[in-house]
Amino acid sequence: MRKILKGGILIAVLFIPLQIFAFEAVVYNENVLSQKVSEELNLIGQELYDKTGIHLFVAAGASTPLEELLKKQDELPKPNVLLVLSQNSHKVDIVGSQEALTFFDKEAVLSPYPGTGTILPILTSHKGQDVFNAAILNGYADIADRLAKYFGLKLEHSIGNANRDTINILRILFYGFICFALLYYVQRKMKRARHV
């Protein structure tokens, strides 16, 4: 009986620190983010914190105004970055400690252009029912990647920017085809002009 009790105490002592120090990326969620997305955010956020010491958080509200969600940043450990989404206000923002915000380009993440931004293009696409989860996950991962890049690091749990890379490749192919077609057209016109 004593061996079982000692074994149970040993297991409890070993697992308590894991529970105490588990990183929670989502500091506020009003039934906007799914459990699966929250878990993915926790993995990325934990790795980012372990490697850089920067806390990256999310606050997502369905009916809570953006201004209320932005106040959450003051309660968080520093240095921090907080990605905020308010469905009711139809707004997204990124706030954080002054130091942490200098490590990446916030305006690029929030850009409405698909080649640059990772949040607003998804929210405005209206394709699919789960645009909020996709937008937050993409934006969070983009911020994490940008912070890691600033410190010369690579995140193992990064989801990357596959959508942006695919769009850029398609854009290059499209413009390349247009240029080729124009050059071919001009060349044919010049040949005809010579033969006349």
Results as ranks from 00 to 15, higher is better:
residue 3 K to I: 13
residue 7 G to D: 13
residue 10 L to P: 07
residue 12 A to R: 05
residue 18 L to G: 14
residue 19 Q to C: 11
residue 19 Q to W: 02
residue 20 I to H: 08
residue 24 E to T: 09
residue 27 V to E: 04
residue 28 Y to G: 05
residue 32 V to Y: 08
residue 33 L to T: 02
residue 33 L to C: 05
residue 33 L to P: 02
residue 38 S to M: 12
residue 39 E to H: 03
residue 45 G to S: 13
residue 46 Q to K: 14
residue 48 L to H: 05
residue 48 L to K: 04
residue 49 Y to M: 12
residue 49 Y to T: 11
residue 57 F to D: 05
residue 60 A to Q: 06
residue 61 G to N: 05
residue 61 G to L: 03
residue 62 A to T: 00
residue 65 P to S: 03
residue 65 P to M: 05
residue 68 E to K: 15
residue 69 L to A: 03
residue 74 D to F: 06
residue 74 D to K: 14
residue 78 K to W: 00
residue 79 P to W: 07
residue 80 N to L: 02
residue 80 N to W: 02
residue 81 V to W: 02
residue 82 L to C: 14
residue 85 L to C: 02
residue 88 N to E: 13
residue 92 V to T: 12
residue 93 D to T: 06
residue 94 I to M: 05
residue 95 V to R: 08
residue 100 A to Y: 04
residue 101 L to V: 03
residue 103 F to S: 06
residue 103 F to R: 13
residue 104 F to V: 00
residue 105 D to P: 10
residue 105 D to L: 00
residue 106 K to D: 07
residue 107 E to Q: 14
residue 108 A to M: 12
residue 108 A to P: 09
residue 112 P to A: 11
residue 113 Y to M: 09
residue 115 G to S: 15
residue 119 I to A: 07
residue 119 I to K: 06
residue 121 P to V: 04
residue 121 P to G: 07
residue 124 T to L: 10
residue 124 T to D: 11
residue 125 S to H: 00
residue 125 S to Y: 03
residue 128 G to F: 05
residue 129 Q to E: 11
residue 130 D to M: 05
residue 133 N to K: 06
residue 136 I to W: 04
residue 138 N to S: 15
residue 139 G to T: 04
residue 139 G to P: 06
residue 140 Y to H: 07
residue 141 A to W: 00
residue 147 L to F: 05
residue 148 A to N: 11
residue 149 K to C: 00
residue 150 Y to H: 15
residue 150 Y to A: 14
residue 150 Y to T: 12
residue 150 Y to R: 15
residue 150 Y to M: 04
residue 151 F to H: 11
residue 155 L to T: 07
residue 156 E to C: 07
residue 159 I to Y: 01
residue 160 G to F: 03
residue 161 N to C: 09
residue 163 N to H: 03
residue 164 R to E: 10
residue 167 I to K: 01
residue 171 R to P: 04
residue 174 F to R: 15
residue 174 F to L: 15
residue 175 Y to D: 10
residue 178 I to C: 13
residue 183 L to C: 15
residue 190 M to Q: 12
residue 191 K to M: 12
residue 192 R to C: 00
residue 194 R to A: 15
residue 195 H to T: 12
residue 195 H to N: 10
residue 196 V to Y: 03
